[in-house]
């Protein structure tokens, strides 16, 4: 058996790619060099050239994946720190989440059809705004391809994290609460980590956005998809 198939080695490759990508971004100060995106590309290129399958990589990768769950639980701390401002605006927060959730599912379905996507692709894209475990579950329920959903979810998160603050600026969304909330609603935990970098207040509302939208999407997606005849 080839050494490149060693799972510990593959974990090390993931770390090195990420650290290298972080260094690259700091060195050149280019936003587009998002460390998550760059390290995904580097790892894929490495696996392709060395002939390692994704299944083999996953044997190591799942040890990194594993930490997503406790990391999402940990988001409860920034959320707790912002509880008093959440209480103050419960109604605006809830209503904007419902609006964002519905707008997200409807817009992705309409756009995908407009661009000529097949039914399977439309269903795989429908839950793309929410965090991977929820999105994959919904994708399987409504007849999408969960693996494609997972990839699209991560890419959406990266896009939202990179472009999110530019989009809120262009849409004249000014309050830090609304900015964080919108980014978390559209770009789940990856967007939240970008919001965290800007400040804990942004990050906390972003995690609120990802939580409420995750719950709403899980509850409403099959219903909304049925309503719009998808």
């Amino acid at each position: 058996m080839n050494f490149v198939n060693n799972e510990i080695f593959l974990i090390a490759v993931t770390f090195i790619s990420f650290i290298g990508a972080q260094w690259l971004q700091r060195r050149f100060c280019i936003k587009l060099l998002n460390p998550i995106l760059v390290s995904i590309i580097v790892v894929i290129l490495f696996l392709r050239t060395s002939g390692v399958s994704y299944e083999t990589y996953s044997a190591g990768g799942r040890y990194i994946d594993f930490w997503l769950k406790p990391a999402v639980v940990a988001l409860g701390l920034p959320l707790y720190r912002q509880l008093s401002s959440i209480k103050k605006q419960l109604l605006p927060l809830l209503l904007s989440e419902v609006a964002g959730c519905v707008a997200g599912i409807v817009s992705v379905v309409v756009l995908a059809r407009l661009f000529g996507a097949s039914h399977e692709i439309v269903m795989s894209l429908a839950p793309k705004a929410v965090t991977t475990p929820i999105a994959m579950e919904i994708s399987a329920t409504v007849g999408g391809i969960p693996a494609l959903t997972a990839a699209v979810v991560v890419c959406t998160g990266i896009f939202g994290g990179m472009a999110g603050f530019r989009i809120v600026k262009l849409s004249h969304i000014k309050s830090p609460i609304a900015q964080g909330l919108s980014i978390g609603t559209a770009a789940h935990a990856v967007g939240t980590s970008a919001a965290m970098e800007r400040g804990e207040r942004y990050g906390a509302f972003s995690s609120l956005g990802l939580t409420i939208n995750g719950l709403l999407t899980a509850l409403l997606a099959p219903f909304i998809l049925g309503l719009i005849g998808a």
Binding site: L95, A129, F159, A178
Partner: peptide, 27 residues
């Protein structure tokens, strides 16, 4: 199907951010 996948994901992400933020401001 790269065009529908990329186009719909990017477009819808912009829509979600704008709609969520605007609704919040309005309410």
């Amino acid at each position: 199907q790269w065009l529908p996948i990329v186009g719909a994901s990017v477009g819808s992400t912009v829509v979600i951010i704008a709609v969520t933020g605007w609704t919040h401001r309005l309410v």
